[in-house]
């Protein structure tokens, strides 16, 4: 009797603790790889000193002022390039996702694989390949120039256009996949219902398909805008001296100049800028709706 009662009590306690125990690895992971690095970067951004002498915490707000003063141009440029690349990804990725989801038929997974195929080659390698292909006297431009189809001083690289297109190219699958996921599971009946209620193809798309797929677009925009804004590979390989993005600055300050506090401050400014951008975007889209449809 007492044994049974004890076992009962034990089982009750285990049952109560089980959810916490199950969630513990996740919390540990977050604490170790998210909270700790963030805390360390925050404290670093408020320090003074050098690599040789060591860094001391002095609550140096001046790091932020210096970061903005020195690099506001690169920060704005990064957000602009990231934004343009994201827009390009939406413009190209949405039709692709739509076509695969609605017209792909039995070959949907094949088409998706084709979209993902470039991922099997390293990101840096692909970008360098583009640099090679598009170089002023490379395979494409060189041939066209020798045929007299392009003026001799024509170039694609070292320009904002090259950087933005490179970013869009590299991150396109991140836009296609979430949009595809939403369109694919959309009840085709709603599209028919729209047609049935006197909406032509354009009206049905604008009033029904597009609004219902916004959660996918939202996810895609987040997944493209954040990494493109922070990217430095494309700007380095495809851009020139005028196209430096903030990612490159951070990298240089950390790894070349060892200016850890300044680099940390820039990192934080970029993060804040992205968060503000994302939240105002969610607000404009109607967060409630985005979350509601996504929850379904």
């Amino acid at each position: 009797m007492t044994m049974a009662a004890t076992r009962e009590g034990k089982r009750g306690r285990t049952a109560r603790l089980a959810p916490y125990a199950l969630v513990l690895p996740g919390w540990l992971w977050l604490a170790l790889f998210f909270v700790a690095p963030i805390a360390s970067v925050i404290s670093m951004s408020l320090m003074t000193g050098g690599l040789a002498a060591g860094y001391t915490f002095t609550f140096e707000i001046g790091n932020y002022a210096r970061a903005v003063e020195l690099y506001w141009e690169q920060i704005l440029r990064s957000l602009l390039y990231g934004g343009l690349a994201t827009l390009l990804c939406v413009a190209i990725g949405y039709p692709v996702a739509y076509w695969i989801a609605f017209k792909g038929g039995a070959y949907k997974s094949t088409y998706l694989l084709l979209v993902l195929l470039p991922f099997f080659v390293s990101f840096v390698l692909r970008t360098i390949s583009w640099g090679f292909i598009l170089s002023d006297n490379g395979v494409v431009l060189g041939t066209l120039k020798s045929l007299g189809l392009l003026p001799g001083d024509f170039g694609v690289l070292n320009s904002a256009t090259a950087v933005v297109f490179g970013l869009a190219y590299n991150f396109l699958p991140f836009m296609v996949l979430p949009i595809y996921a939403v369109l694919e599971r959309m009840d085709h009946g709603v599209v028919e219902a729209a047609h049935d209620l006197y909406a032509g193809r354009v009206q049905a798309f604008v009033r029904v398909v597009l609004p219902m797929s916004l959660p996918g677009v939202f996810a895609g925009v987040i997944m493209v805008f954040i990494p493109t804004s922070a990217d430095y590979v494309n700007a380095t390989v495809l851009g020139g001296a005028d196209n430096t993005m903030i990612g490159k600055v951070i990298q240089t300050q950390y790894l070349v100049n060892n200016a850890y506090p300044l680099a940390a401050a820039i990192t934080f400014i970029l993060m804040a800028a992205l968060l503000i951008g994302i939240f105002s975007y969610a607000k404009a889209l109607g967060t409630e709706q985005v979350m509601e449809v996504q929850a379904r």
């Binding site: 709603v190 049935d196 219902m212 449809v293």
Partner: peptide, 20 residues
Amino acid sequence: VAPHRRDVNMVFQSYALFPH
């Protein structure tokens, strides 16, 4: 004639209401 030009309306089995 296309469905949106026909003067008939349908009630779908899945209702097909616009969730948004």
